[in-house]
């Protein structure tokens, strides 16, 4: 139990998906221009992350690993993620229209977000149990959401400020990301003490 929460919180705060593992940086930089888009993307990432962990984990441990085909994980996982997204889209559109509206167009775009494949691979690499893998995926999704929401605020402030010509747009966003990342470094050590 303690293990679960330790994984959850350390993935959210210390090993933050975007700010320390550098996964999903593209969507992080691209979609944080306004709150609505980043919310849609975050919901979609959390959802797809959880479902595809639940699908890829058994595939790896009951199908690939016993037959010695572990090296096929990249190929299989990316195809599973693509298929999962397609199926999910159809189901959600029918069964949960409000959720579908919230995710909007971000669901199909998510297939090749490197955050999803990255987290699947990390879960296998760390040899988590199934519950811990789900926790790590949930934490990764929540960490992504947290980083997105923090950064939306930062960028809104930046829109109105006077920046040198060459630094306008992406470079200044990257500098801001650097400072947000420094802020997240402050969390390291907190989790260890919290659960010791």
């Amino acid at each position: 139990m303690q293990d679960m929460f330790k994984i959850l919180f350390s993935v959210i705060l210390i090993d933050n998906l975007v700010l320390s593992r550098f996964l999903g940086v593209c969507s992080f930089l691209g979609l944080t221009k306004d709150l609505k888009n980043s919310m849609g993307m975050s919901v979609a990432v959390i959802f797809v992350m959880l479902v595809s962990t639940a699908v890829t984990y058994p595939i790896y441990y009951y199908l690939l690993d016993p037959s010695g085909l572990g090296y096929l994980q990249t190929v299989i996982f990316i195809l599973v993620i693509a298929a999962t997204v397609q199926v999910l889209e159809a189901i959600i559109r029918k069964a949960m229209p409000p959720l579908y509206d919230a995710m909007g167009i971000f669901l199909p775009l998510i297939t090749t977000n490197c955050a999803i494949l990255g987290v699947m691979l990390i879960n296998i690499q760390e040899t988590y149990s199934f519950v811990n893998a789900i926790m790590s995926s949930l934490g990764a999704g929540l960490g992504y959401t947290l980083a997105m929401f923090l950064f939306v605020g930062v960028r809104e402030k930046m829109e109105t400020s006077d920046i040198p010509e060459s630094f306008k747009g992406l470079p200044s966003a990257l500098m801001a990301a650097s400072i947000v990342s420094v802020a997240f470094m402050g969390f390291s050590g907190v989790i260890e003490n919290l659960f010791s």
Partner: peptide, 9 residues
Amino acid sequence: PAGGFAIYG
């Protein structure tokens, strides 16, 4: 990581 973002920017 912070330095990576800064250098890239």
